[in-house]
């Protein structure tokens, strides 16, 4: 069957099988390997993507469910030239990356928080990333990076 959706800013039409998960569509068919398969059953968050600005686990979604939606994967966060965006840069500056396996999902979880509010408390940030497991960092520097980016984006908005 065919589906139409917006993927990282471009409209796409794709042939899929009805039982295919969104994660499998991204990785196996589209070669977008940024979303990882840490568990395939909704327990780790490494497969996170944004669907209409909301954080979703792509291993738990069927590809058909994104019909007509806006889907953003980690590949759609950086500039087309591969420059990290402000949040990704903040991850680098704050040492929020260790092994990096959770990082794409974490960046998207951060984006989902920041789409909702630019004044998140640290607890709100922790709630926002609670579905994304990280075994390396103890989360503190990830929270720092998201908090710092919120501050920067707030300043940018205020300056306008």
């Amino acid at each position: 069957m065919k589906i139409n959706f917006n993927l990282n800013g471009s409209d796409v039409e794709l042939e899929i099988s009805p039982e295919q998960t969104l994660l499998s569509l991204l990785r196996d068919k589209l070669g977008l390997f940024g979303a990882k398969q840490g568990c395939d059953v909704g327990e780790c968050g490494t497969c996170s993507v944004l669907i209409n600005d909301e954080l979703r686990k792509s291993c738990l979604m069927l590809a058909v469910q994104v019909e007509g939606c806006r889907v953003v994967t980690i590949e759609g966060v950086s500039s087309p030239q591969g420059e990290p965006n402000d949040l990704q840069q903040a991850f680098l500056d704050h040492g929020s990356v260790q092994c990096g396996f959770c990082t794409p999902g974490m960046v998207l979880a951060g984006e989902a928080i920041l789409k909702e509010t630019l004044t998140p408390t640290r607890t709100q940030i922790r709630e926002g990333i609670a579905g994304n497991l990280c075994r390396c960092t103890g989360y503190q520097q990830i929270v720092d990076a998201i908090e710092d980016t919120a501050q920067q984006r707030r300043t940018a908005v205020e300056e306008k």
Partner: peptide, 23 residues
């Protein structure tokens, strides 16, 4: 001093290749 990890950029961009990403 503050320094960026050498393998950090690929990892935040999602382009780092783990075994499961090699086909």
């Amino acid at each position: 001093k503050p320094a960026q990890r050498v393998d950090g950029l690929d990892k935040v961009l999602g382009t780092a290749k783990f075994v499961g990403d090699i086909k």
